[in-house]
Design a protein around this nucleic acid. Structure first.
Lengths: 337, 337
DNA sequence: CACTCGACTGTAAGCGCATACATTTCGGGG
DNA sequence: CCCCGAAATGTATGCGCTTACAGTCGAGTG
């Protein structure tokens, strides 16, 4: 910046103004400065700007990482191999985050913010979260992935929004799908289809979205018989849960699509029974056989809304706490038509 | 940091050491400092650190954004709707980037770097790229999305690695799939299957990967008849290209999977003819009907390798320029068994 | 017991920018 | 022409950290 100022024959303050607030500088000087910037290939230092302005214009996004196995070493050889039929690549379990991420990036960019992502789990969590918090103006975190006390600490410095949950448990802003009513509607459909007994495969304990969905389900089925088992939101967990069932219900309701696909791997529906349903609306459910009845939640909108909420909070630090609930759609496919 | 120092009864330099290089501080003092950090909820400012240390420990990733249409306003109502059969959600065209992104994030995190992503196109490109460049220690860019002169400028400050292309056109580090040999192998398979005449649907002009693939193809088929048309890497482009064909070749070879799926939308293969092939290995090709023969490239490895290359470059600024070529796999499915 | 040396800690100088405030310039109106 | 206010620009400070360098302290050595 000093170089640019010298080159253009102005002070560094003027250079700064040309960049930050061009209208306050006379056109002629502005052109001189811009020419110098161009000529010198000047690239402003975000660190210095962030330090001086006390804001970075970056929003952070924190995700858990499940696959904390050591990834394979990067390939050395480049030989082309040929595989007949399908490759054995594991089905991608993380599409959820990808779409949220894309929505977040879109909205952040629209608002002039950059997006920084971090993910991790376990022992490195504290370091990662603190590090991320020190870099950004606001933070969006997947609910349940970071201990509350850590979030409280971060929230003393910057706004934090949680993806998932309705905020009855804490004082943070929240963004979540309309989980309860969505699942309720789905369960009502199963009742209309004549289902009288149920199994419900939940997610891990302490996940707000899971609680909400189960709540909606319970509300719909009332006191009809329900066998409840725990899964872990993965396809494998769904398979295990299906094998663990002791009853043979009319319908198996799963807390998410991966779980439901796992259930379908094990249970071969004969004449359309039992009915099986999921929640999320991932692409794999559309192509499965039978295709999966589910509740679609707008992932990318979740990401966008999270950024919306956190940037709004930056502008109005004292506004009342908000929980944004996004609409869902029940999608009826072959597994529970 | 000053508060922490006061609280612990040490100087700020010692606090800094406790964070940066704990071993140089006596255990007793270290504990006092850590206690103070905990008690005060201290979160280090990455801006200040970045400014003082002249490095941010962030790697940037720049992607194009195709869907530059105004996104819909965020939903207001949360009513649950019910849809029978499939929803009309457009097939997601961007899965490519998602996987690259995930690989990049993984590798960056493993190396102690954070990842910042930005995407955009058109007029905002210069601002976005410069802005990103000012925030990071190194930059990975999808080849062809940013003008060379802009990259040259950025590269005067930080290392830049391009995703795609083999670097014969420029002086940057590159990471790319083994495009040519992969496509060559695929074409050889088609020859073995008895194909004697071909159509080849290319991507947009000036895309290095497209050139490499077409090169590999040409090498395999020699002087056999080939009708070459241009697509744009999209499914729609594939449909258009298929309709535009003037010949009825034995095999239609496409520069990527999306294009091939578009071709399959139009051409109904009768008795397995014509053969149709793609390139990429996206999930949709596995579930299409017929399922798609393709060349699978390791997206997530691409992301990881990009981070690997750029961080290596940070450590060895004067090392010879490198082009990393990642292995691909030919996957034979129904469209060209 | 003075001296040396290593281990530890403190001092102070920026890092590159934003911005409050001071200063200069400019365009009119009187 | 002069004076005045607005527009344009310059001056100077500090944002919160890292790090070279200088100091301090204690233990080992001759």
């Amino acid at each position: 910046m000093y170089d640019v100022a010298a080159q253009a024959g102005v002070s560094i303050a003027t250079v700064s103004r040309v960049i930050r607030d061009p209208d306050t500088v006379k056109a002629a000087t502005r052109d001189r400065v811009n020419a110098a910037i161009e000529q010198l290939g000047y690239v402003p230092s975000a660190s210095a700007r962030g330090l001086a302005a006390r804001r970075t214009n970056v929003i952070g996004l924190f995700f858990p990482r499940h696959d904390d196995v050591e990834p394979p070493a990067l390939a050395e050889q480049t030989e082309v191999s040929v595989i007949t039929g399908d490759d054995e690549q594991p089905e991608n379990e993380n599409l959820y985050y990808d779409e949220v991420l894309r929505g977040a990036e879109l909205e952040a960019s629209r608002r002039g913010f950059a997006l920084m992502i971090a993910s991790g789990t376990g022992g490195e969590l504290e370091r990662l979260v603190t590090d991320l918090a020190g870099r950004v103006d606001g933070l969006a975190v997947l609910a349940g992935t970071v201990p509350m006390e850590m979030l409280e600490r971060v929230a003393r410095h910057i706004p934090v929004v949680l993806l998932g949950g309705d905020g009855r448990q804490d004082r943070f802003d929240h963004v979540h799908s309309n989980n309860g009513p969505g699942m309720k509607k789905l369960a009502e459909h199963l009742l209309e289809r004549g289902a009288k007994s149920f199994a419900y495969v939940r997610g891990p304990e302490g996940v707000a979205d899971d609680d909400e969905r189960f709540g909606g389900f319970s509300q719909a089925v009332g006191d009809r018989p329900v066998e409840v088992v725990r899964g872990d939101f993965t396809r494998r967990g769904g398979r295990a849960a299906a094998r663990a069932l002791t009853s043979t219900p009319d319908a198996i309701v799963c807390a998410n699509d991966q779980t439901a696909l796992g259930v379908l791997d094990v249970i071969t529906p004969h004449e359309g029974k039992p009915l099986v349903t999921g929640f999320d609306g991932i692409a794999a459910g559309r192509h499965s056989s039978p295709s999966l009845t589910t509740v679609h939640q707008p992932m990318s909108e979740l990401g966008r809304a999270a950024i919306d909420v956190v940037t709004t909070r930056l502008e109005h630090p004292d506004a009342p706490r908000q929980t944004r609930t996004l609409p869902v759609r029940v999608i009826l496919r072959e597994s529970a038509p």
